[in-house]
Nucleic acid binder design. Structure first.
Lengths: 191, 191
DNA sequence: TATTGGTAAATGAATACTTACTTACATCGC
DNA sequence: GCGATGTAAGTAAGTATTCATTTACCAATA
């Protein structure tokens, strides 16, 4: 390294960790690979993040923050929000994959951003009547927005078309948006 | 072992593998732990399944088969089918978790049951107009049925209630069924 | 029927290699 | 020179996979 910059090194490590964890998860990740990819070394990882799971936790938090910042929730139009979430995950599935791995391998960390959850729930609750129904709705909306990226290729290609073609993407995005719209309509109309 | 029974031993190994892989995934699983849990030994795993990923693949296939057999699709009432899927995943998340891990760690294996996908797609296509729309719909229906089990505890509890309470479960199941019903209605009405 | 030989099933321990984590040392900026 | 930052080479504990051997079972033979 020519220039010494703790912040920059930390950031490079975190970035490399995000990619590695998104690709192979916590158990599959290799500390040495992350260090190499970051242009740093193992020692620095332990200096900055304590241990492997500490780095993973930091990566998860970073991923969730990125996601929340990139796709701010708009309670008035959940359908459009779902569409933007879909776009975000499609363009870069890193954050989604890291979150999912956290949910499987470290559920406690995945449940951490309680504040954000509470906020969204309350915002939606005013439209749906109760907090419970808001949670039920949010759970479903999230999953619809993620469905495409998490579906096996075999299912996506079951109609004989290429799942990565632009028309195919546009088609599914439309399905996502109108599905969420239909569900929200339903929930708002019958409390 | 008192009795020598290749089939039984194989079955015990597979059962133990399912539990282990569901809990910690392919990279997190320990061959030795599986052997011990199965009341067998490591060498047998290699005799019957070749290697660790061979065992994982076998576990995935077994999980998918179990799931397909336990919750046969009913194209005429996708909503009820989603409800039964929800029940199945809730009672035992093993198959769902194994499938999800396959999707993350070995996408090729997760995409394997093409036959089942094609069948379901065709069955739904006759109701929705085109195979493409059928796939879009199926992807979303699957994800809605799984959403609860895959959501972080923090979100599920954001309304202040206990996510594992029977009333909470009943409430969400209802949300799943009526959501799918609403989406299917929409898709059938406007082709 | 008792003996023998063959084969599938099972086992414990070794092998070859990874992997998270540490230590001892170097270098930069103030 | 001193604390912060960086590096390379360890180390001890695991870990997938293989080896050498034993055990149970079966059937043919004498």
């Amino acid at each position: 390294m020519v220039v010494r910059d703790a912040e920059a090194t930390r950031a490079r490590i975190l970035e490399a960790a995000l990619a590695e964890f998104a690709a192979v998860g916590l158990a599959g990740a290799r500390v040495e690979r992350i260090a190499a990819e970051a242009g740093s070394n193992v020692r620095m990882i332990y200096a900055y993040f304590g241990n492997k799971s500490g780095l993973f936790d930091a990566a998860v938090r970073s991923a969730v923050e990125t996601m929340a910042a990139a796709v701010p929730p708009t309670p008035d139009s959940l359908a459009e929000w779902a569409g933007r979430l879909f776009d975000f995950h499609l363009e870069d599935p890193t954050a989604l994959r890291v979150s999912l791995w956290a949910q499987l391998e470290r559920p406690a960390v995945a449940s951490e951003p309680m504040g954000a959850y509470l906020e969204k729930t309350l915002a939606v609750a005013t439209r749906v009547g109760s907090a419970r129904r808001a949670v039920d709705l949010l759970v479903i909306v999230y999953s619809i927005a993620q469905a495409w990226v998490l579906s096996p290729q075999g299912l996506l290609a079951a109609d004989g078309s290429d799942p990565s073609s632009p028309e195919r993407i546009v088609s599914h995005r439309a399905a996502v948006v109108r599905s969420v719209a239909a569900i929200v309509d339903l929930e708002v109309s019958q409390p």
